[in-house]
Each structure stands twice: as structure tokens, then as C-alpha cells.
Amino acid sequence: MIRLLKLEWTKFRKNNVIILMLTFFSLFLPASLYFTTIIPTLPAFFPSKESIIQFPSIWEYLGYAGNWMSFFFLGVLAIYLVSIEINNKTLRQSIINGLSRQEYFLSKVLSIFVLSIGATLFYTILCIIIGIINTEPDTLKLIFDNAYAIPRFFLMTFGYLSFALFLIFIIRRSGIALFLYIAYGIIIEVLIRYFIIEKVSNTAITNYFPLNSFEDLMPNPAFKFTESIPNSVEFDFLLTHQQATLSSIIYIILFLGISYLSFMKRDI
């Protein structure tokens, strides 16, 4: 496993796209938090601007910012990790040179695993630093009162990246995979859910869609306030953490399992 990670490191440490995506992720994550604090008027139901950067709620706010950042920058990066090897035929060459297909697939899964761990560490450190700076000393004891935010963040990121790997392994065209990833994440799943709620069943079942499951691990904190939930919805708008965790794990297994099976038997 270490051998495979070393190999990935040799391949990608000098890659500009990857460096750029990681830089964006690390800059925009703290920046997004900063931008929310300078919005002049927050919706009336928000407790206070300060809570955004204080314990314990910073875990939720920064987590939600990370939700978008992981989806975009790390998701694109995950697709790129495979697509550049398809386009330059180094995937093919790796197998010819003697890597087994299992090893190759594992090297990509390990890569997104390490990326997710790294992103989670960054998120954790950022939360602690910003939180400590901005929280009054007497509430500092709430520092880890975060309902497992750290593992939730990890699972969310790993979920998005598994979905990204799934698309590029199945579709194998970088442009189409990238487009579908972004389009599905932003609008297609929402439209499908909307259609089902309107036409088929107005129940919480659509909450269990894959990207919504990942998203609900670190949901928009605004949805905690009933005022921000659309009136037409007649059910709990968010999955509970337990529900989202279970559903996400199932989707991750499905995405990676299907990619693996497809990769093992297709011509490359």
C-alpha cells in the first residue's frame, strides 16, 4: 500500500493542476468563512454573526463551506487523477509494465483516501485555530462539542471523491465525466428529487439520494431553522447524522464496488 502511494506521489507531486486545486481548496475554505462574516445582513432567524466563527457552531459553518470546497476542488482533482492517466495512456502502460488492475484501482482509492484525510485534518486545524481566536474563554470548553463533525467531514469528502472516481472509471472521458459530476451535483439530482417529490411521493425518501446523503453529513446550518425550509416540503428536510452516515457508507461501497468490477473486466 505504501508502495502504491509512493508511486502516486512520484506521478503527481509536480502536477500543476493538482497543486492548483489543492491551493484553491486551502485558500477558499477559510476565505468562504470570512465572506459569510462580512455579509451585511444575515436572515433574521440567525442567532448572531459571531457564532459563525465561535465554538461550537464553527464546526458546522466551516464544515458546510468545506462541503462545497471538497465537492468542487477535490472532486475535480479526483477525476483528474484518473483522466490524465487515461488521456496520456499511462494507465494502459502501468498495466503493461506489470501493475495488476487491482493494484492500480487500489492506488486511486488510496489517493482519494489520503486526500480526504488531509482535507479533514486541514478543516480540523482551521476550526480549532479560528475557534480559539474568536471564542470567549468561558465558552471555550465547547471546543469539541461538535457531534462527531470530524468523522462526518471525512466521510462527506470521501463520498464525493468516490462518486468522482466512479464517474471517470465508468465513463472514461474526462470532459463528460467532469460535466456530469458538476451538473449532477449541482442540479440534476435536485431536479430528480423535485420531480419525485412533486409527482411521485412527497416523503423523506428522496433525502437518501447519494449526493444529498453526503451533503447532509455537513448540511447548510440555515436548514436547522425551519424558516429557511420550503413550505411545500411535508417531511424532515435533513437526514439525521446517523441516517446520512449509513446511507453514505452504502453509496461509497456501491460506487467503488461498481467501478472496481467494471475496471477489472473492461478493455483498457
Binding site: L7, N16, I84, N88, K89, T90, N97, G98, L99
Partner: peptide
């Protein structure tokens, strides 16, 4: 088939790692 942004040595080293 090689990585375009890596030099000859680095590309050969990737093959070396795969070949153990």
C-alpha cells in the same frame, strides 16, 4: 506513454517502481 510534465529520469523512475 509517459507523463508529459515529468522529465525522462522521473518517467523512467515510475516504470522502475512498478517493476519493483
Amino acid at each position: 506513454n509517459f507523463f508529459p510534465y515529468l522529465n525522462a529520469d522521473q518517467n523512467l523512475d515510475i516504470v522502475r517502481q512498478i517493476k519493483k
